[in-house]
Simulated scan of single mutants.
Amino acid sequence: MPKIKITPNTLLNNSKKIWFTCLLMAQICFVTYLALGYGLTGITTGISGWSRLNSTAYVASDPIGNSMYAVHVLLAIVMIIGGSLQLIPAIRAKYTKFHRYNGRVFVLLACTISVAGMYLMIARGTVGNTLMQGLTIFGGCVVILSSILAVRAAKKRNISLHKIWAIRLYLAANGVLFFRLMIFAWFLLFGTLGVDTTTFTGPTVLAVSICSYVIPLLIAELVRHAETTTNKIITIATASLMVLISIIFLVGLFGIVLAEWYPAIVG
C-alpha cells in the first residue's frame, strides 16, 4: 500500500473545506428559517405576522420601514445561496458564465440588503449598545466597499485581486449569521455569562460582534498567508483554527435551531 503523505498545505485545504461545509449547513438552515418563517408567513397572514418572529419587523405606521425589512430578509434567501455557489471551484471552472452573472446578482443583493439593514438600524434601532451597532454598520460598509473593489478588479481581469475582495465581501455579507452561530455557541457552553439579557449588552456580546465582523477579515488574511508561507507551524496552526471555528459553528447551529429557528417555523 502506498503511503499517503499529509502535508501542512493538505491540512489547510481540508480545514477550509470543513469550514465551508459547516457554514453551508448553517446557511441551509438559516435560509429554511427565512423562507418558512418570513416568506410563508408573509403569504399566509401578511407581513404583520412577522411580529411573532421579530418585534421590530412590522410597524403599522411605517410602510417604508416595513418594505426595507422585507427587502432585508427576503432577498437574503437568494443572496446566501448565490454567494456560496460563487465559492465552489467546480462551478467557477465549468460554468464561467453562470459564475459571472451570479456574481453580479450577489453583489447587487448584498449591497441592497446592507443598505436596508443600516436604514432599519438607524430608523428603528436594534438591540445592543452603540458600539455593537457600529460594528454591524461596519460590516455593511465592508460589503459595499468590497463589492465595488471586487467588480473593479474583475473588469480589469485582475483575478487574484478580485478573489481577495470577493472573499472579503462574502465574509462581511455573512456577518449576521456568524454572530448568531457564535452567540448561541456561547449560550450553550457558558450560559449568559458576560451578557445582560435585558439590554443584550456586555463584554461577551461585544466580543462576539468583533469576532463576527472584524476577525473573519483578519483570519482570511491569515489563511492567504498560510497558503504561501514555508513556515509549517503557521500553516498547521491556521488549519487548526479553521477546524475550531467549524466546531463552534456546529455547536451554535445546534443551539439556534433548537432554541429559535425550529420553534419559529412550527409555532
Rank of each mutant, 00 (worst) to 15 (best):
L11Y: 07
L11S: 09
N13A: 12
N13K: 12
N14F: 11
N14K: 12
N14R: 12
S15Q: 01
F20P: 07
T21F: 14
T21I: 14
L24H: 04
M25W: 14
M25I: 15
I28Q: 07
C29F: 15
C29H: 12
C29W: 11
F30S: 01
F30C: 05
T32V: 13
A35R: 02
A35G: 06
L36C: 13
G37R: 00
Y38G: 05
L40M: 14
I43Y: 12
T44R: 12
T44Y: 10
G46T: 10
G46A: 09
I47M: 15
I47D: 03
S48E: 13
G49D: 02
S51W: 08
R52F: 02
T56A: 13
V59G: 09
V59D: 09
A60H: 10
P63Y: 07
P63E: 06
I64V: 15
N66F: 08
Y69W: 13
Y69Q: 08
V71C: 11
H72T: 08
V73E: 03
I77N: 04
V78E: 11
M79N: 12
I80S: 05
I81F: 06
L87M: 15
L87T: 10
I88F: 06
I88A: 06
P89E: 05
P89G: 04
I91C: 00
A93R: 13
K94W: 07
K94I: 08
T96V: 14
T96S: 12
T96E: 12
F98M: 13
Y101H: 10
N102C: 07
